[in-house]
Amino acid sequence: MRKKKNSEIGVLSQLVKTPSGLIGTIIIALLLITAIFAPILSPYDFSTQNISERLSGPTSEHHLGTDHLGRDLLSRIIYGTRIALKVAIPAVIISLFIGVLLGLIAGYFGGIIDYIIIIILDTIQSLPSIVLALVMLTLLGPSLTNLIVVMGLTLFPGYSRVVRAQVMSARQELYVDAEKALGAKPLRIIAGHILPNVVPAVIILSTMDLPAVITIEAGLSFLGMGVRPPSPSWGVILNDGFSHFRQSPWPIITAGAALAITTFGFTLFGESLRDILDPKMSGMDS
């Protein structure tokens, strides 16, 4: 199978050969470095206030200016990277887990079970994810953990659909039926034959989902339903900036740029990965 050829290093070296793959990889690498080394990179503590220097533009002391409490924006943006990844990665893992599980069940069993699962997926997707997440967060109360859980629960239908479709096509293939006839247990069939087929698609999907999750997280924080202050989520910085945009545009500009660059980088990376892992899927966006 294809995946055998693509060892991790092989994929990476292929990735950096195309310009978009290279840019995507660089951006993600920078993001990871920023997140890991945030305490070293940021010039100030992200929560130290200095009310007398509030809402200043870029100066030699504060390279990106300060927010409405006089906190250093550069440090807040740097720590914001951590929040973005801290929410996005576990959320994607949760939705991946639930999504793959339901997709496997639906695709493997088919029939009425499949129908019920599809209806559930349709229901979840019939409301925009931001509204659904908002309603659920209202129930649970905003916090980092709840945010992660809610995002996971909101986004899993995408995985289920992809996995289900893959399982269905795999089921068509003769060997699965043959094994069934030989009395193999469903679990073995799934693990042995179906799952490997699904892996590339799921990897691609989850890379592409990361920027979506980051966008929604910042959006929820922008609406005031995200992480607790003084955690410097980019959405929180945007929200604070929105309240003070006449006095200083810098919070909006910096947090907006951070979000734009991050989503851009992840998408480039995800698309290049898709082109390598599964050329069939290219062009099938939207």
Binding site: S47, Q49, I51, H68, L69, P142, G224, R228, P229, P230
Partner: peptide, 25 residues
């Protein structure tokens, strides 16, 4: 209110009180 809470959080840190902000809808 978030601003009040954030300022108070900083103030109380100085006397050894750790203040968690529970901002709710």
């Amino acid at each position: 209110y978030r601003v009040w809470a954030e300022v108070l959080q900083q103030n109380l840190k100085e006397i050894g009180i750790n203040l968690e902000i529970n901002s709710m809808e």
